[in-house]
Design a binder for these strands. Structure first.
Length: 470
RNA sequence: GCUCCCAUCGUCUAGCGGUCAGGACGCUGCCCUCUCAAGGCAGAAACCCGGGUUCAAUUCCCGGUGGGAGCGCCA
């Protein structure tokens, strides 16, 4: 039997980071075994499902590069099929109509809670054996076994046993005839021949119900693997407030998709001491049995470290492509100035995010409009101005504008004047970048180009002449 | 409240009866250095508690404590 996994989000919001991880695990497992990966949109709750959310999920999957082999399938398009199965269960006496009002159910729940009991349906209509009269409101409930137990042989949690007596008869069709979650999942997993269900462990408690329905349908349940939740950095539930919960927020913060993927795969899964995994390596090494059964917390600084790793080691063109998107957001046009790939090369060791890199890259494309006050005061001294003037002339005289030539000029001058390199490099940085931080000065000047460098030095000299130096 | 899940450095984790409890991020110190980084080296830092089982428990079992999830005509 070929492996088939699925990711089945409900479109009520963005693609959650936890969802992204279960999607990744499902994807990896299918790929690893040469199987297929299905995307299914669970939109049976028409109140809360939105098209924007569907698009957000699709966008998130695409950004991460998690390609699905089948789908997206929409449950709302399968209502006829669900109706058919519900009727089948009804006909076979495995489901029944329930006429209890919401008021009665609410009251029942309240009473049970007051008695410190687990709130559950009391089987009031279980043996009525009645079909609704014309216009009469009724839901359909699944006739859950009253005794015995259900064993979930979970690949990450191990054997988990539930007593049927703990379960009640859940509603599988609402009064308006639409099917409910626990039922549609079962029918879809059955119809789509899903072999491995990898999902959040918040679904573990639903699993025995689903298994019972599956059995009533005469189908063997798939293999289940319930992965623990992802908590925020404080060990609390991930929320919009406490750190980013949406995958797209990570894009916006300047993360590379491969960094996010690498981070997520290691959050709850491991392969010995290895930390860095390309997608191909993940596919080759991933196994459900290596998933940790305990929940894990986000470690933002480790994600940052991974991001920097990928910024440093990924193909420059690839990084440049993502960087230009962020530069666009900051209103910097990378067309006028040095090749973006070379800027990426120069900055890759000094940026943890692409947002940071875009900010640092700004001066390559836009001359500084002002000088950082502290840097100016510290480095642009009265004594250094004549040296800068001299350097300006020597740089102007250069016929080949290469890092090497620039380096030689600066070094020679520093030596002649018995100055440390920093004494010249720092004011130069202020002149060309506006701040005292940049890639190595020779690289910076080379990338900027002779014309820009000379004009920026002139500007600083003028500024010093009118505004003064320290 | 009931049912279920979980528990190794601050965090992510390795471990699968005998280890000086390993790695990674972060942190601290040193080196390198034209700035910022990157890099190199060194260091501090963990088996939740109590019972068993065993010659031997971080590891297996039970209980406690502490976290978490579920208990909808939501998914």
């Amino acid at each position: 039997m070929t492996v088939k996994t699925r990711f089945a989000p409900s479109p009520t919001g963005y693609l959650h980071i936890g969802g992204a991880r279960t999607a990744l695990y499902s994807y990896l497992y299918a790929r690893r075994h040469g199987g297929s990966f299905v995307l299914r949109i669970e939109d049976t709750d028409r109140e809360r499902s939105t098209e924007e959310a569907v698009n957000a999920i699709l966008e998130g999957m695409a950004w991460l590069g998690l390609e699905y082999d089948e789908g997206p399938f929409y449950q709302t398009k399968r209502f006829d099929r669900y109706k058919e199965v519900i009727q089948q269960l009804l006909d076979e006496g495995k489901a029944y109509y329930c006429f209890c009002t919401r008021e009665r159910l609410d009251k029942l729940r309240e009473e049970q809670m007051a008695r410190k009991q687990k709130p559950r349906y009391d089987g009031h209509c279980r043996n009525l054996n009645r079909t609704p009269k014309q216009g009469e409101e009724a839901v359909v409930r699944f006739r859950n076994p009253l005794d015995g137990e259900v064993v979930v042989d979970d690949r990450v949690k191990g054997k988990v046993v539930f007593q049927n007596a703990e379960l009640d008869d859940l509603i599988i069709a609402r009064a308006d005839g639409t099917p409910t979650y626990n039922f549609t999942v079962v029918v879809d997993d059955m119809d789509m021949q899903i072999t491995h269900v990898i999902r959040g462990d918040d679904h573990l408690n639903n699993t025995p119900r689903q298994i019972n329905i599956l059995r009533a349908l005469g189908v063997e349940p798939p293999v289940y693997a319930h992965v623990p939740m992802i908590l925020d950095e404080h060990g609390k539930k991930l929320s919009k407030r406490a750190g980013a919960a949406s995958v797209m927020e990570y894009r916006d913060m300047g993360f590379l998709p491969e960094a996010v993927l690498n981070y997520l795969v290691r959050l709850g899964w491991s392969h010995g001491d290895q930390e860095i995994f390309s997608l191909d390596e993940m596919v080759a090494l991933f196994d459900i049995d290596d998933i940790n059964s305990a929940p894990s917390s986000m470690n933002p600084s480790k994600l940052l470290w991974l991001n920097q790793h990928y910024i440093k080691h990924s193909d420059r063109k690839h990084v440049a492509r993502h960087l230009s998107w962020h530069m666009g957001r900051l209103g910097i046009a990378p067309s006028q100035g040095p090749a973006l790939e070379r800027v990426v090369e120069a900055l890759s060791e000094r940026a943890k995010t692409l947002v940071e890199m875009a900010q640092s890259a700004r001066f390559f494309y836009q001359a500084p409009t002002e000088y950082d006050a502290k840097a100016y005061k510290k480095h642009v001294t009265e004594a250094i101005l004549p040296v800068l003037k001299e350097l300006r002339e020597r740089l102007a005289a250069l016929s080949t504008w290469t890092g090497e030539a620039i380096h030689a000029q600066i070094h020679a001058l520093a030596e002649e004047r018995a100055l440390g390199l920093g004494k010249i490099a720092q004011p130069l940085r202020v002149a060309v970048a506006g701040v005292a931080v940049s890639p190595p000065i020779d690289v910076t000047l080379e990338l900027l180009g002779q014309e820009q460098v000379l004009s920026r030095i002139d500007r600083l000299l003028n500024h010093a002449a009118t505004e003064g130096s320290s």
